[in-house]
Design a binder for these strands. Structure first.
Lengths: 198, 198, 198, 198
DNA sequence: AATGAATGAGAATTCATTCAT
DNA sequence: AATGAATGAATTCTCATTCAT
C-alpha cells in the first residue's frame, strides 16, 4: 500500500477495501482488528481515519451510492434509443451481479443497525429516492412504477442468491425479466411497440 | 411460572416467540439475555431447552419453513381454478407481508452466519427447493421459471421495504406483478388466456 | 441399580460409585449433573442424599479412609513373622496400585479445596495420623520414621505415575524400595537381621 | 503501568508471577479475573498475552521446567566429588522445598487437565525424561533406578505435606533418605564405599 | 501519522442448587 | 422418594475504543 499523503484520499482508499470485508463477514460479525488486518494497518491507524466502526460503515454506504450513481450515468451516456438503453442497463446489472449481491448483504446489515436508534438519518431512503428516477431515465420508461418494478426484481434476484439454488442463476432471471417487461409494455404502453424493436 | 410437562412442546412455544425477537434485533445483535428476557425466562432455562444461540436460530428457521409449507397447503386446498389460485396466492402474500419481511431479515442474517463455516448443512437451500414447486403448484403455472419469477419478485418487494420508500408499498407492487404476469402468460401461454378470466 | 430401602445404606452405595468419577474428572471439573448421570440418578435425588457437592467429596474421603483401615487390618490379620508382614504389605500395595493412584488424585484435589477456607476440619491430617501407626504395626518396624519412609515412598510412586514415564512402573519401584529397606534395617537395626530371612 | 516494549519479555514476567497464583488456588479453581487481579492487569491485557487460561498453564509448566534445569546445572557446576554432589543436591532440594511442593500441586492439576483430551502433547512426560538423567548426573550414581528412587521419594515428601502431619517434615525425611541411600550403595555398589566418605 | 498495549463492559455459556410436581 | 425444570451468579473470553510512545 503506497503512502498517500492526502488524508481524505487515503480514507477513501481504505473505504474501498472495506467493501469486501463487510460483505463477507457482515457488519456485526467483523471486528475492528479484522478490518485493520484486512487493510494492512493497525487499529490505531484505523481510528485515526474513522471515529468508529459505525462511522466506517456509514461512510462506506454513502461512498458506494455516490460511486454507483456516477458509474451508471457514465455507462449510459452514449446510449440513444430505448432498446439500446434497456440492453445496456441489463448488461450493466449482469456484469456487476456479484457487486450488487454483496451490496444487498451490506444494506440489510445496515438496515438492522439503524433501526435500533431511530434518530439516525436513513441513508437507505436516499438510495432509492435517487436510484429510482435514474432507472426511469436509463430505461426510458415513463411509468415510475415499472421502473421500480425492475429495480425491485433485481433486488429479488440478489436475495435469491442466498438460497443457493443453482436453478436461480442471475442471467436466466434477467432474461425472463426482459421478456416480462416487453410483454407488459406491448400490452399497456403500445407507443413502446411502435418505436422500438428489441 | 408453571412447570410445563412436555419438554418438546414448550421448546416449540419458546421458538415461536423467538421469531419477532430475531427479526427485530438481528441474529448477531440480539443477546441471549435479551432473548431470555423477551421470552420471560432465565438464561439458564433458555439453555435448558437449546444448546446454543446458533441452535435456537437454526431450529427457528427449520420450524418456520415447516409451518409455512403446511399453512400454504391448507390455505390453497379449496381453490380450484387457476385464476382463483393466483388470486388467493397473492392475497396470502399480501396478508403476510409483515411476516415475509421479517423472514427475509432472518434469512439474510442466517446466510451471513453459515457462510463462515461452509461445512454446515444449508437450511436455506432446502427452503427454495421445497417452496419453488409449491408455488408452481399453487399458481397452476407449468413453466417453473415463471413460478420462480414470482417468488423472486416477492423477495424483491421485501427487500425494497428496507429502503423505506413510501412509494414502494407492498400491495401496489403486487398489483403490478399480477398485471405483468397476466401480460406474459397471455403472450407466451395462450392456453392460459382461453381458460381463465382474471 | 436395585432400590435399597435404607437411606443410609443407599447413600453409601452411591458414595462407592463416586470414587472413580471424582478420580477421573477431578473435584472441581466434574459437575453435579455428571455425577448424577454416572450414578444413574437425577440431580434431585443426588441432593436428596447429599447436601452439596462438597459434602459428597468429604464423605467420600472419610468413607475411603475407614474402609482402607479395615481392609488392611483384615488382610494382615493372619501374618505372623515380620518378613511375612512386609511381603504381604508390599503385595497389598501392589495389588491396589490403581486404587492408591486415584486416591492420590482425590487427596490433592481435596487439599486444594480445604486450604481455601481454613476453618474446615482437615480430614487429611487424620489420614496420616491413623495410617502411620498402622504401617508400623504391619511391617513390625519399631522406628516410626522408617514406617513413615515407606508410606512416603509409596505416595511418591503414585505421583510418578502422572509423569507417565514407562520406566517408572509401580512394581519395579516397590522392588527397589524393599531392597533399600532391607539394606537399611541390616545396617541400623541388626536385630532385624538375626530374626528374619527375606 | 508503564508500556513494556518487549512483548515476549513481559509475557514471561507475567508467567513468573502466575506460579504462586496457580499453586495456591489450583488450575480449575482460580479464575481469569483472579489471575488478572493477582498480576495487577486487566483481563483484556491477560488475553493480550495469552490466548487462554489453558495456554497460561501450559506455558507456565514449560517455563518452569526450563528454568529448573538451568538452575540445577548452574548450582552443581562447581561440585567435584560424589559426596559433594549428593550433599549439594540434597541442600538444593531442601532449600527449594516450598517451590517443589507448589510444583507438585501444579503438576497434579495439570495432569487432571490433560487426561481429559488425550491427544494433547504431554508436557509431564518430558519433565521426567529430562529430569531423570539430570539426577543421575548430579548424584554421580550409575544405576538409573536409584536416581529415579531419589526423585520419586522427593515427590513423596512433597505429597506428604498435604497430610499436614507435623511429624513429616521435609528435612527429617531427607536425612533418612540419605541414610537409606548410603546403606544401599554400601551394600550393592561397594565401589562407592571405597572412594567416598560421607 | 502510526502503533499496539491496555482497558473493562458485556457476550455466550455453565453449574450448583432449589423446588414444584 | 424421585424427578428434572428453573434459576442467576459466575466463568471464560471478546472487542470497540483509548492512549502513551
Amino acid at each position: 500500500m503506497p503512502k498517500i499523503v492526502d488524508h481524505n484520499q487515503y480514507r477513501q482508499a481504505l473505504l474501498d477495501q472495506c467493501f469486501d470485508l463487510f460483505a463477507e463477514k457482515g457488519y456485526s460479525t467483523i471486528t475492528m482488528r479484522q478490518i485493520a488486518a484486512g487493510l494492512g494497518v493497525s487499529t490505531g491507524t484505523l481510528y485515526h481515519y474513522f471515529p468508529s466502526k459505525e462511522a466506517i460503515f456509514e461512510q462506506l454506504v454513502e461512498e458506494m451510492i455516490q460511486r454507483d450513481m456516477l458509474q451508471v450515468s457514465s455507462e449510459m451516456a452514449t446510449a440513444k434509443t430505448t432498446s439500446d438503453r434497456i440492453k445496456r442497463g441489463f448488461e450493466f446489472v449482469e456484469r456487476k451481479q456479484d457487486y450488487f449481491f454483496k451490496q444487498l448483504l451490506i444494506f440489510t446489515d445496515y438496515y438492522q443497525q439503524i433501526r435500533q436508534d431511530s434518530n439516525q438519518p436513513n441513508v437507505l431512503e436516499r438510495v432509492c429516492e435517487r436510484i429510482q428516477p435514474k432507472i426511469s431515465e436509463i430505461l426510458g420508461i415513463h411509468d415510475p412504477q415499472v421502473a421500480q418494478f425492475v429495480f425491485t426484481f433485481v433486488d429479488g434476484i440478489c436475495v435469491s442468491q442466498i438460497y443457493g439454488c443453482n436453478a436461480a442463476n442471475f442471467s436466466t432471471h434477467l432474461q425472463l425479466l426482459l421478456k416480462m417487461l416487453v410483454a407488459y409494455l406491448e400490452k399497456y404502453e403500445p407507443s413502446f411497440l411502435e418505436t422500438e424493436k428489441l
